[in-house]
């Protein structure tokens, strides 16, 4: 019980300290606009990839449709903030985007989550493509030209807070009754059914939850980049999120953080290499996969509570993980 609260407090202190550190570095001038842009991109990628990791890593459903849900969030925000261009409008659009994304996830999930492995990947990819094509042809979304002049309603602190919130939400979900059910399905669906777990229900729950976080990421993307087009949410976007999940370690939220940061920094650092950039980037991916096939961190999670318990020498009986 003691370790639980102590760990929560330490995570809170770390989160606040991180915030002030970035803030100070910006004031001092160490972090310029260029680096700040990198940090925000990393933050948005973390939000998107942790949601995808819940679907792929925890419930074991290989989804390639994450960009579709991201598009829903982004367009909800772009359209609503045209009418109400203030912070209130942004948070309203964020909620609307989440709700629509969750509804769409239910509609897509019920038929497709019966499929397994690569079949599911193709079906979800198709579903995301349908979302993109619909957006491409609607008047309200301004078709293929996309939407621009979206008001700048999010800066790095907004993204930072949302990274903390969505991570907390997903980690808590994964370390509860729901999380045990979806992980059991990942391990062995037949055995999970035999112990009273309804696979359809729980797979759908994880899928819908992942879709909601993707919509949050999309909304933040829209108000930060300020210009969106349907082509931003194609299969390549889904794959780049998948790369973050696989590289960090399927089923490790800490790994998703590490991979998003490593790839974000790598991407920025390589910009001076021009045409060689993608070659080096791809080479780095191949090398990591060859030498760390289960991702940078495998299934490892940072756990302050675990550290406290090990130091204190007494063993708790509750779950030993608590991230951020």
């Amino acid at each position: 019980m003691q370790a639980k609260w102590k760990a929560a407090l330490i995570w809170l202190v770390l989160a606040v300290a991180g915030f002030y550190l970035i803030n100070e570095l910006i004031v001092v001038g160490v972090i310029n606009a260029f680096i700040e842009n990198m940090l925000v991109t990393i933050g948005i990628n973390i939000i998107l990839a942790t949601g995808l990791n819940l679907i792929i890593g925890f419930s074991g459903q290989f989804s390639l449709g994450h960009a579709g849900f991201m598009a829903i969030g982004a367009y909800a925000t772009a359209i609503i903030t045209q009418q109400i261009s203030n912070t209130l409008g942004f948070y309203l659009s964020l909620g609307v985007g989440m709700v629509i994304a969750m509804l769409v996830a239910v509609v897509i999930g019920i038929p497709t989550l019966r499929l397994r492995g690569d079949y599911l990947a193709i079906a979800t990819m198709g579903a995301a493509e349908i979302i993109r094509v619909v957006i491409n042809n609607l008047k309200i979304t301004n078709g293929a030209a996309g939407m621009y002049n979206i008001p700048a309603l999010a800066n790095w602190p907004t993204v930072y807070v949302f990274v903390c919130l969505t991570t907390l939400m997903i980690v808590n979900f994964a370390r509860s009754r729901a999380g045990r059910a979806i992980q059991a399905i990942r391990e062995d669906e037949i055995a999970a059914e035999a112990v009273g777990i309804n696979p359809t229900k729980w797979k759908l729950a994880a899928f819908v939850m992942g879709a909601a976080t993707a919509a949050i990421g999309g909304s933040l993307h829209a108000v930060y980049i300020q210009t969106i087009a349907p082509s931003d949410f194609g299969i390549m976007q889904s794959i780049s999120l998948l790369i973050i999940v696989v590289l960090g370690g399927v089923g490790s939220i800490t790994g998703t953080f590490v991979a998003a940061i490593v790839l974000g920094v790598l991407d920025t650092a390589l910009q001076q290499f021009g045409a060689l950039r993608m070659v080096i980037y791809a080479l780095a991916l191949i090398l990591i996969m060859v030498f760390k096939p289960s991702g940078l961190l495998g299934r490892y999670e940072v756990s302050i509570k675990g550290l406290l318990e090990r130091k204190g020498g007494h063993h708790g009986t509750t779950d030993s993980h608590e991230v951020e």
Binding site: A181, A184, E187, V195
Partner: peptide, 29 residues
């Protein structure tokens, strides 16, 4: 057919999910 990558404790707890109900908001908050 065990849940091989889950701990023994989690294997048992995964088999108990229908014996109690946990509110979604209580879980994530």
């Amino acid at each position: 057919r065990l849940f091989s990558k889950l701990s023994v404790r989690d294997n048992l707890q995964a088999a108990m999910t229908h014996r109690y109900h946990e509110n979604f908001f209580a879980e994530i908050l």
